[in-house]
Design a protein around this nucleic acid. Structure first.
Length: 506
RNA sequence: GGCCCGUUCGUCUAGGGGUUAGGACGUUAGAUUUUCAUUCUAGAAACAGGGGUUCGAUUCCCCUACGGGCUACCA
């Protein structure tokens, strides 16, 4: 066990958008694998044909790709243990289910869904298990003859695990420590469905075994079915190869209670999916962290800190650092409420720490979405450097830098006009003249000239600085005005003063 | 209802038998910036409750409360 190669997997079912909790599960798996020089495999659990959604599989791949959590083995890149979609492995599972029946650990059940519904209504707390299986139609309650007849007639049936009575199943969870269950409390879960597809329960253990998975990390919602999986590993004779389990704490709603869901995002105004998901059935787009302007590095960083920390005060980590520092036993046991404010803080930090060059392509996209084409890349890079510390999400770059590329569409006239007068008008006209005599604008020199003129005209900084800013920017924001003027250049600065003067004087 | 898991500032968390219970987000107040943001300084803010064990419990044990998960031929 100890010297077994580390192999972990993420096994989503392709049913819709990839939830942030799912990405965190991927991340923890990935970090653990990379830390231990192991493999990270992506396996698609598409055993439920009713819930299968076209395009969801590719979408999951795209999300992982955006995050930079690329699987070593997957349906697209393949691998030694292909295929990686359970639907393509369908034929494989039946033999194991049959083997369990042969050995008395499982049985055929012929009950129809209607019959089971009736039972559930009739008996409070009904469970298909030791207490009631004799009253139902299965190969345990029926005679061998009856069973053979039903089988020969191709009667629809499932295979259920036969939970033992009066046993305690326990195991050591890497996060939670000792966990135990009474078998009497666990029902006889379906292993193989009537359509021949395995349920999750059978499929995970068979595939984890076949794919030589060494560590299985999944959400806490799986904890109650762990005893079924444990028993299956044992009954199938693979106990020595069973992976080590870790059940990750859930990500909860920021307000109220419960697991975080897509609805909460819409309700509270933040993304829940990694990337935009289009639900064809509802004809509805749900934006993701990517569309709202999160950097993948920030997204990963904030996810990592939801339920894990390295023990120190550090909160900003690169993927490489996370790999270096990650330890599964430092994952906390309790669920974490998602805090969008903090999530945004991580992104702002990452924007500040990313070079302008590194941000360039993303900013170009943001501006292009708003119809702003950037012609001069070098100019854009200086602009990004000038404004990035006031951007929290990528789209903020539009508001913060559009005026570097075009004359403001609107002016915050309310901040200027009430106090506008002829003296100020004259000041700016003189300033234009001054500017025209210069070859170019140097921020420091220009500031000195500007202030000298201010004194000469007996104006206070408060009188002209804000109007000047609004002339160049349109509003009360942005870097130092003189830096903006220098970046804009002499001609454009003059142009904007003249342009704004018309508006202010009207 | 049953079973399982959990519980430190509003939130994410550190800590762990003797601490002024630490950090971060957010928040409040100040400083810097005659814009906005950044940055800086300071402040308010927590061990769910009750029993044990112990010289001493927030830390260990038990109970209660509360929260969450599961309870499908879904994953």
């Amino acid at each position: 066990m100890a010297d077994k190669k580390v192999r972990v997997r993420f096994a989503p079912s392709p049913t819709g958008g990839l939830h942030l909790g799912g990405v965190r599960t991927v991340l923890f798996n990935y970090l653990f694998a990379k830390k231990h020089g192991g493999d990270f495999v992506l396996r698609i659990e598409d055993t439920d044909q009713n819930r299968y959604v076209e395009g969801a599989e590719q979408y999951i791949l795209d999300c992982l790709n955006w995050c930079g959590l690329t699987p070593d083995e997957s349906p697209v890149v393949g691998g030694q243990y292909a295929p990686y979609c359970q639907s393509e492995r369908k034929a494989l599972y039946r033999q194991y289910a049959e083997k369990l029946v042969m050995e008395g650990h499982a049985y055929y059940a012929f009950d129809t869904p209607e019959e089971l519904d009736a039972k559930r209504k009739e008996i409070p707390n009904f469970q298909y298990g030791h207490a009631h299986r004799d009253e139902l139609r299965n190969s345990l309650s029926l005679s061998e003859h009856e069973v053979d007849a039903l089988l020969d007639a191709h009667t629809p049936h499932v295979i259920r695990i036969k939970m033992p009575t009066d046993e305690t199943i326990s195991f050591n969870d890497m996060i939670r420590g000792h966990v135990s269950f009474e078998t009497n409390q666990v029902d006889d879960k379906v292993l193989l469905k009537a359509d021949g597809m395995p349920t999750y329960h059978l499929a995970v253990v068979v595939d984890d075994y076949l794919m030589k998975i060494s560590h299985a990390f999944r959400g806490e919602e799986w904890l109650p079915s762990a005893p079924v999986h444990l028993l299956l590993w044992e009954y199938l004779g693979w106990k020595a190869d069973m992976p080590q389990w870790a059940h990750l704490p859930l990500i909860l709603k920021p307000d109220g209670h419960g697991k975080l869901s897509k609805r909460d995002g819409a309700r509270l105004g933040f993304p829940v999916y990694a990337m935009e998901w289009y639900d064809a059935k509802a004809d509805e787009f749900t934006p993701g962290f990517r569309e709202l302007g999160f950097l993948p590095e920030a997204f990963l960083n904030l996810l990592a800190m939801l339920g894990w920390n390295d023990g120190g005060d550090q909160e900003i980590f690169t993927l490489d650092k996370l790999i270096e520092k990650f330890s599964i036993d430092r994952v906390s046991k309790a669920g974490a409420k998602f805090d969008y404010e903090k999530a945004k803080w991580y992104n702002a930090e990452w924007i500040k720490r990313t070079s302008a060059e590194g941000l360039k392509d993303k900013v170009i996209t943001v501006l292009a979405d708003k119809g702003l084409a950037v012609k001069d890349d070098a100019y854009l890079v200086t602009v990004i450097d000038a404004v990035k510390e006031r951007c929290i999400l990528l789209p903020d770059f539009y508001q913060q830098s559009a005026y570097f590329f075009e004359v403001p569409k609107e002016y915050d006239v309310n901040s200027v006009k009430p106090k506008w007068n002829e003296a100020k008008n004259e000041f700016f006209n003189v300033l234009i003249g001054l500017l025209k005599n210069e070859a170019s604008i140097n921020a420091v020199v220009f500031e000195a000239q500007f202030k000298a003129l201010m004194e000469e005209k007996a104006l206070k900084a408060g009188d002209v600085m804000l109007p000047f800013r609004i002339m160049l920017v349109g509003g009360k924001f942005g870097p130092h005005v003189f830096d903006i003027a220098a970046l804009l250049g002499k001609d454009e600065t003059i142009n904007r003063i003249e342009h704004a003067l018309v508006v202010f004087n009207s």
